[in-house]
Design a protein around this nucleic acid. Structure first.
Length: 115
RNA sequence: AGGCAGGACCGGGUGACCGCCGCGGCGGGGAGCUUCCUCGCCGGGGAGGAAAGUCCGGGCUCCUCCGGACAGGGUGCUGGGUAACGCCCAGGCUUCUGCGCCAGUUUCGCGACUGCCGCAGGGGACGGAAAGUGGCACAGAAACAUACCGCCUCCGAACGGGAAUUAGGUUUAAGACUGCUUCGGACAUUCCGGAACAGUUGCGAACCGAAAAGUCGGGGGUAAGGUUGAAAUCGGACGGUAAGAGCGUCCGGUCGCCUGUGGUGACACAGCGACGGCCAAACCCCACCUGGAGCAAGGCCGAAUAGGGGGACCAUGGGCGUCCGGCUCGUCCCCGGGUUGGCUGCUUGACCCCGACGGCAACGUCGUCCGGCCCGCUCCGCCCGCCUAGGGGGAACGGGGCCGACUCCCGGGUUUGACCGUGGGCUUACUGCGGCCUGCCUGGCGAGGGGCUAGAUAGAUGGUCACCAUCCCUCCGGCGCCGUCAGCCUUCUCCAUGAAGUCCGGCGGCUUCUCGAUGGGAAACAGAACCCGGCUUACAGGUCUUGCCGACCC
RNA sequence: GCCCCUGUGGCGCAAUGGUAGCGCAGUCGAUUUGUAAUCGACAGGUUAGGGGUUCGAGUCCCCUCUGGGGCU
């Protein structure tokens, strides 16, 4: 995932948290808000209650890989928040959970021609 | 083989596809005007032994004008190592466990207990308790200043002893005995009896008449003994004493402004003196160290917003106000601070390995602020050149090579002198040999080789597989072992449908061992965030090595 | 990343180095027709864990763990 696809500003995280739309399942929570760019940006929140530094990094890496594999519409900022079960989940379970949330918030690009 | 303990090390490997973050090179595009942004290709790099906990120590940065002292904090046997440390190494002391030896007590003996010493292994925040303050619950006489009981001694008085008056004393005196004299029995120096005198003893009577032990009170001595307690006034034995006491002796212990010897020192040994409870991870005293904050330190850049300070414009304008004075609002410029964002600090360092030398070890050292020459690289205010390209020249820093000088190290030779060791000698003078220091001369393929080294910033190593190695589980087969069945053979016998043994085969099972193979699973603790040195804590599995125990074989 | 604080019965809190306690909650009994209130009795603790100092540790010292807070 390239740098321009990442959320880096703390102010933007707070704005998305306050004003964005949300959805959740047992592994993840998503909050999303439109931006003015042609591409979408993502942020990942994995709190200390998930585990130690190794498992937190592992969860973030797996989430980035999952979002990279899924085609997403442009023009959105989305924040994924890991819930407690995400530490013990397999990679494929996380990928399915992320895909599920992106479809439910209508962010997934279902048209194969616009990739 | 295996087990235990210590030390050192590793912390899965290879490959494919898709991805991430720096670095170098080349190319395209954009901003822009010499540096950024972005895209593509190529090359190369990318988490640890603890990156962790943040318990110590340093570097680095900022703050205080500079310096000192106090407070506060820390450390605490000695010596060494280190940039430094609360870390490391060596040693000392102490303590625990095991073994051995010796002595004592006890036992018929075996043995048991106590103590000294030695060896091996483990532990120790290990200065000072005769500087002061404080604490030591309960129990106990008593917890550090004394003396409750007890023991000994002295004094006192009521008692007691001792009251129908004891021991004893004085007087009187019955009686007894002895000696001498004398009388009588017929006589007698003998036998019996009587009398006088002297001596001894003394029933009885009269009179006098204590003391000790013991009880109580008081004074003094003593610290042996005393239901306690975690701890009891150096421990044990003998002597000694009125009773006792390190009061004395022997064995042992602790301490010391003491003396001697050894050691750099802690300390040890011997002598002398003393015997003072424990607690300083209670206050404290002594010695030493220590300014505070921390990369979110600090520096730089640009923009926006609100407010602050200064200046200019006030001929003007708005608001308050009847008006004036006055207050407030305005426009422009500058200044510094805060917030936010970006850049920087930002990664090669007291680094690691091998070798040599020094050191028991930890660890240290392995050339030079020197001169000259050459090479490569960078830069240029000089020259040639239109100016680029290029060439020449120069400069400073760094790198490499060669030569010289100096220093160090090592080796050889030699002179003088001092010292040390050893020998000769008349134990004096003197002298032989060796060592060491210093001076001079001279020599050296001598002063080494290799390796690693991330820099993210919502925070980079992942996802999907394949194969190989490690371990575990399940299943199957072979070998092995056990049980059972029938048969062959051998031995015994009471000669049969008996008992025992052995081999092969069939069937069933497998706690363990070995080999092959199917399927499945496991693979730890854990993620750099300025950088190092330690400590502590977590950790699957594996490798090497040392010591001890130890099966089997020779 | 850095700097601090806390941990005691189910809950909230005490305890000078000397027997671990108080209130609420719980259980049983009494009282009441019954419940609440009230009264009486009872039970419940590895003082977060480990090690050390001390005769003796919840307390003093060291290490670890847990929960929480602050800086930005």
């Amino acid at each position: 995932m390239q740098r321009r696809q990442r959320l880096t500003q703390s102010r933007r995280f707070g704005q998305i948290h306050r004003e964005g739309i949300s959805a959740a399942n047992r592994f993840l929570v998503i909050r999303a808000l439109p931006n003015d760019l042609e591409w979408s940006r993502f942020g990942f929140v994995v709190s200390k209650r998930i585990g130690n530094a190794v498992t937190r990094n592992l969860v973030k890496r797996r989430l980035r890989e999952s979002v990279r594999q899924i085609r997403v519409k442009g023009g959105w900022d989305a924040v994924f928040i890991a819930r407690r079960g995400a530490a013990s989940a397999e990679y494929r379970q996380l990928q399915r959970a992320a895909d599920n949330l992106l479809r439910r918030t209508n962010l997934a690009d279902t048209d194969p021609s616009t990739t």
